[in-house]
Nucleic acid binder design. Structure first.
Length: 457
DNA sequence: TCTGGGGTCCTAGGACCC
DNA sequence: TCTGGGGTCCTAGGACCC
């Protein structure tokens, strides 16, 4: 493991963090321009907790991660609208946002579904703020999503700059921390827990020792940071000093593990239902495994009862695979086997989790003594992927998983919107009297044109 | 009655070898 | 028989992120 720090050198080059504002809510509003200005939230699976909030919902005091049942009455009484999450839609819109960004930088790292780091192109170095505004306008125009842009020499500083751009309307969504500049006043205003890389645990620790702000963290000694927080803490402090420790990593490396898990809509008591669920999660993970061209070397399963009810039971088991594989049949069998080894009768299970580990590239298979690989199962899985992709839904699946399943999550507030589905597009009425409204053939230009929420463009 | 899902990295400690 | 130090590799658990 490389624990060394890069050479001590202030970085003159600038990078940008482009962060979509209230991303899931913004996606839903693309298709519901009538919700502009109204409080909107998007909920997690099972409509359990709030995972994205419009500014109006934030202003009402709705917290991130709050259980929706606790605030539902209050929220809906005041005109709030809630959606179940629609990840397929968010991923498709994310692709459009990233495409809009890609053309404007020599190098970029897609950091999450709603964030990307961009290297500022050489020809924009003398005018980074203007370039940031161009990027922001382009994403709004081409993908319909409002973003905040933070510009700074380091990722950690760019995160803080973007946050400032998002929170202060007078910035117009773009904020710059110049290289070699004096950031003291800026950092003094930032609570230490708002710094990227300082989580709940570390911030509590730092606060107890009087490190309350980003400024104090920046000025802490390396030795102290290394002893207390380890190398990650040191790197974070250096980044606040303007020294780049985390680069923009363009290549999207294959994931090292793939997991699939769900909280059940209703508690699962019997082994057969648990086997169904674990099989389904193994297949979901298997499809993603094949789509990134990897093979799994192990399958781990964990199951648990509710954390909010005693007695709690949680257990995990891992099945190593004889040979790395991407065959659904082998993955599902291994997952079910692992589950059976930890399943205890008579409990109300709330959740199950399947994790594919020890991934390796499919094109460099290590041969084993016994041949091992399930070639036919692998081919069958790939064929089924292609057919399901072609029809746009799960046409092929094991009989075991067909029909309604009580444990499948609820999504009662799902918008059902999909980008390929013209029927889900909003209608935009033409201005001329007496002429029928035309259906809009393309997205996302159409809904954007009806949206009043983009004053800066 | 109702509390998400999917990742990465770092570190400490044990096993094993010389 | 007993004792020792140093190195590598692996893993579980903890911390962080969105």
């Amino acid at each position: 493991m490389d624990n060394t720090l890069p050479l001590l050198r202030k970085c003159g080059d600038m990078l940008a963090l482009c962060d979509c504002n209230n991303f899931f809510v913004s996606c839903e509003r693309l298709f519901r321009p009538d919700l502009e200005g109204r409080p909107v939230v998007v909920l997690s699976s099972n409509d359990g907790i709030v995972v994205s909030r419009s500014n109006e919902a934030k202003a009402m005091g709705i917290k991130m991660g709050e259980a929706y049942f606790k605030v539902r009455r209050f929220f809906e009484k005041r005109g709030g609208v809630a959606f179940s999450s629609n990840f397929q839609l968010y991923e498709e819109i994310s692709d459009r946002v990233m495409a809009a960004l890609r053309g404007r930088t020599p190098s970029m790292e897609v950091y999450s579904v709603d964030e990307a780091f961009l290297e500022v192109p050489p020809d924009a170095r003398g005018r980074v703020e203007e370039w940031g505004r161009e990027v922001r306008a382009a994403v709004l125009r081409e993908a319909g999503i409002p973003v905040s842009v933070g510009l700074a020499p380091t990722k950690t500083a760019a995160k803080l700059a973007a946050e400032r751009g998002k929170k202060r309307p007078e910035t117009g969504g773009v904020f710059v921390l110049p290289p070699g500049g004096d950031w003291d006043d800026f950092l003094r205003d930032i609570p230490v827990e708002d710094v990227w890389g300082i989580g709940w645990r570390w911030s509590a620790y730092l606060r107890r020792r009087g490190v309350l702000t980003a400024l104090r963290l920046r000025d802490a000694s390396d030795d102290w940071l290394d002893r207390r927080l380890g190398v990650r803490g040191v790197r974070t402090a250096w980044e606040l000093r303007g020294i780049r420790c985390f680069g923009v990593e363009e290549v999207d490396r294959a994931q090292k593990s793939i997991q699939s898990s769900r909280t059940f809509a209703r508690p699962v008591r019997d082994r057969e239902a648990m086997a169904e669920a674990v099989t389904e999660f193994a297949l979901v993970a298997g499809r993603r495994l094949r789509s990134q061209g990897s093979l799994a070397g192990s399958v781990a399963v964990s199951i648990s009862t509710s954390r909010f009810r005693a007695p709690f039971y949680g257990a995990a088991a891992e099945t190593p695979l004889e040979a790395p594989t991407d065959s659904d049949i082998v993955l599902a069998r291994a997952a079910t086997g692992a589950m059976n080894s930890i399943f205890r009768e008579g409990l109300d299970y709330e959740k199950a989790h399947v994790l594919l580990g020890r991934l390796s590239p499919a094109d460099s298979v290590q041969l084993t003594l016994f041949g091992g690989g399930d070639e036919r199962g692998s081919a069958l899985s790939r064929t089924s992927d292609r057919i399901n992709a072609a029809v746009g839904r799960k046409l092929l699946m094991p009989a075991l998983l067909m029909g309604e399943k009580e444990w499948r999550p609820r999504r009662s507030r799902h918008s059902g919107t999909r980008l390929e589905d013209l029927g889900s597009l909003p209608e935009v009425r033409a201005h001329e009297e007496g002429r029928p409204p035309r259906e809009q053939p393309t997205l996302p230009e159409a809904p954007v044109s009806t949206s009043p929420g983009s004053p800066t463009c």
